[in-house]
Design a protein around this nucleic acid. Structure first.
Lengths: 241, 241
DNA sequence: CGGAGCCTTGAGTACCCTCAAAAACTGTGG
DNA sequence: CCACAGTTTTTGAGGGTACTCAAGGCTCCG
């Protein structure tokens, strides 16, 4: 299997890829790397000359404030670009860390530029991936601002399930999510204790079972209703873009 | 003054524009429209065939949940694209409304496509604008999740000031912001009452005066320190992109 | 079998919410 | 120029949500 298969699959979710385009993506020069949980993929304030794609595992964008408080602003799964925005932003305003052991690939920006020039359509699909990223961030803002704690957590679970399902990492309502409640707290903007109690509340609804590192959604529609979850923003539809 | 001047100025903030590029942008076919406060620029669930640029006034992205709660996920000022992401997303997952009377311009997507094909560099600058949008959203997530109420509000004020200053809509720490506390509440994820009290707290620090529709920052550095504000994410630097 | 990391529970407090109403401001018509 | 209605801001009171601090229990692995 070509190394960048997860990326190709992820792009192909949203639009038809011509075989030439597939080859173009798979032919990109890259640097592979394996990281252990806790290691940093991309450093805050760095000026990356390459962008990073997750091949396996979970990673997170994080910001650490002066008082030590941490906020996770995105979770990434296989096939996701973690810092494609750096291609244009130049300077990282956050860092990216491995939440689990994972494999990643770094693609030089000059390589991305070459691909985009050869295929403006692929360029638009790369653009699209940053834009979907933004749509997810809007959903997080909404959860954080206006959803009750259980709905906020439930919404995240729905989102993760659909995203993982789309790349065959979830089935029958279940997926592996080996991430501690501390990290969940920083993603939701909760305290650790509050995550724990919210999780208990969610379990009590019967919609979700969460034991160890396995999340099982027993009643997706129930959970979605509770969380006011509308999957539109994930753009899991194949359209000409 | 050409109609799309605010857009050109906004693009030119982040990179040098060749005169041909300037002409290309200013030559885009568009439809102008004047809106009164409260009117909708772009409807949720619509499939726009054009994207909208603010020429004057303030607009907001908003999501209304089933229980009637509202979250504003972005504020836009002159020169901002409000829904450029729809160029690729196709389906709006939120609406855009006028917070004040304003003028806007709608540019057809086929026109954007034409410009991007003629100038890949302009294409990257359009892309950049969606990516900066995303950076702002990350800052909002961080504020919402991990900043104290006064810091959250203070951070927003710092952000607005720098953005407005960059397009000559703010001077000497002051800017016009004719937006009610109700809207502010929906942007911050606070209740109306809490906005009012947080504002009083902020006034009490002496860093900010906010009377009627004029915001005056008395001590920007003080406010920035209180709010843990770091302007990096706004990308107000001219760089080759 | 011991230790590290993670999850869970308890208790007390601070923050922020809702409900409700008063005060101030804005614009309009008489 | 004033009266008045509508909107926006401000205040008060009481309650719930989420936080911090602190400690105990579980699980996995060496």
């Amino acid at each position: 299997m070509p190394k960048l298969q997860p990326l190709v699959r992820s792009l192909a979710l949203r639009d038809e890829l011509a075989s030439g385009e597939r080859a173009l993506v798979e032919g990109m020069t890259m640097r592979r790397r394996v990281l252990r949980k806790g290691e940093e993929l991309v450093a805050q304030n760095s000026q990356p000359s390459e962008s990073c794609i997750v091949l396996s595992g979970f990673t997170a964008r994080e910001v650490v404030l002066a008082d030590g408080k941490r906020q996770i602003t995105a979770l990434h799964i296989a096939g996701d670009f973690v810092d494609l925005h750096a291609f244009l932003l130049k300077l990282m305003d956050h860092s990216v860390v491995a939440l689990t052991d994972c494999e990643v690939a770094y693609v030089p920006h000059r390589e991305l530029l070459r691909v985009i020039e050869q295929s403006p359509h692929l360029g638009r699909l790369f653009w699209l991936s940053t834009v979907i990223d933004g749509a997810i961030q809007r959903a997080w803002i909404t959860s954080s601002g206006r959803r009750a704690a259980t709905a906020h957590l439930g919404h995240l679970i729905c989102e993760l399930y659909l995203r993982l399902h789309a790349v065959d990492l979830a089935r029958d309502g279940s997926f592996a999510f080996p991430v501690a409640q501390t990290e969940l707290a920083d993603a939701l903007g909760f305290s650790l204790v509050h995550v724990n109690r919210t999780l208990q509340e969610l379990r009590a609804t019967g919609f979700v079972r969460w034991k160890g590192s396995t999340v099982a959604i027993v009643d997706f529609d129930g959970l979605a209703a509770l969380s006011q979850f509308d999957p539109t923003y994930l753009n899991l539809v194949k359209l000409p873009r």
